[in-house]
């Protein structure tokens, strides 16, 4: 088994269809929702919304696929690095514990999908979380996943928990609260290891924090296309640089996106 398992080879059964980060960011409709037209800005998720339950279903499915990738990412961290050379044993033990937690979250999410009437694979899966977990530097990996993405997950779980509470849904609120408790532990794991492993390495610390910021913004983004330094396209390139992709690989991915767009407009 190789070290570093590429995101494009993530094993899935036939129900799951992957949407790349470039495809998500390349969706031109995102500008309307991101704030280009305030009349259609995405409202906060509450049961009072006409499409509230369906939005909750879609969000829950996104959480589910995120949990699978978090499980896979933690598992890969157990395998990809040598104890002693690359990481202390205790870091791997923490990752193994995270594997268990994320496996439970998958189980919870599947049960919630059944509760909400969602089919597994009903929505496209975005692979950003696992892509962040592919970083060849374990510090950047934990920062991107445990601090950035799991930190965002806390916001999402709180939203879902409130939704369940407002709707009087005892199952949803109960489940989200349990998952929330675990995520706080994961964020702390990321913070603790970031501090310990970069104690005498400011350059590595700075790079990790930059990666965290990039992941943060990419994940939050809704597809707005822009030309300035903060545009998602620039973010994606920088994300891939920090994630260890070579320039050739990044160019190839960018070319594929351009070709796909050209096919649509021709």
């Amino acid at each position: 088994m190789r070290k570093i398992f590429p995101a494009e080879e993530l094993a899935r059964d036939a129900r799951f269809i992957r949407q790349t980060t470039e495809q998500r960011l390349g969706d031109p409709r995102g500008a309307r929702i991101a704030g280009g037209n305030s009349g259609t800005r995405l409202a906060k998720l509450t049961p009072e919304l006409a499409n509230g339950p369906d939005r909750a279903r879609a969000l829950m499915h996104g959480i589910f696929t995120g949990e699978i990738q978090a499980l896979e990412g933690a598992g890969r961290t157990c395998w990809d690095f040598e104890v002693g050379e690359d990481v202390p044993l205790e870091l791997k033990l923490d990752m193994a514990r995270q594997c268990w937690d994320e496996a439970r979250h998958c189980e919870i999410s599947i049960a919630l999908a059944e509760h909400m009437g969602t089919e597994l694979g009903e929505f496209a899966e975005n692979g950003l979380l696992y892509e962040a977990a592919c970083n060849p530097d374990p510090v950047l990996r934990l920062t991107g996943v445990n601090r950035a993405l799991e930190g965002l997950a806390i916001d999402v779980f709180n939203t879902m928990k409130e939704f369940g509470n407002m709707a009087g849904d005892p199952v949803l609120e109960f489940c989200e609260d349990w998952m929330l408790a675990d995520e706080v532990t994961h964020v702390k794991m990321g913070s603790d290891w970031l501090r310990r492993l970069t104690e005498n390495d400011k350059e590595r610390l700075d790079k990790a924090l930059e990666f965290q910021k990039v992941v943060d913004r990419l994940f939050s983004f809704n597809g707005f296309r822009g030309e300035d330094d903060d545009s998602p396209i620039q973010l994606t390139r920088r994300f891939r640089e920090l994630a260890g992709f070579s320039d050739d690989e990044i160019d190839e991915i960018a070319d594929m996106s351009r070709e796909a767009k050209a096919e649509v407009t021709s």
Binding site: H115, M116, T118, P170
Partner: peptide, 16 residues
């Protein structure tokens, strides 16, 4: 169809 989905929507409006 998607009966369970519709049940979930209905429960959100009418109670669990």
């Amino acid at each position: 169809g998607q009966r369970q989905r519709r049940l979930y929507q209905f429960r959100n409006r009418h109670g669990f």
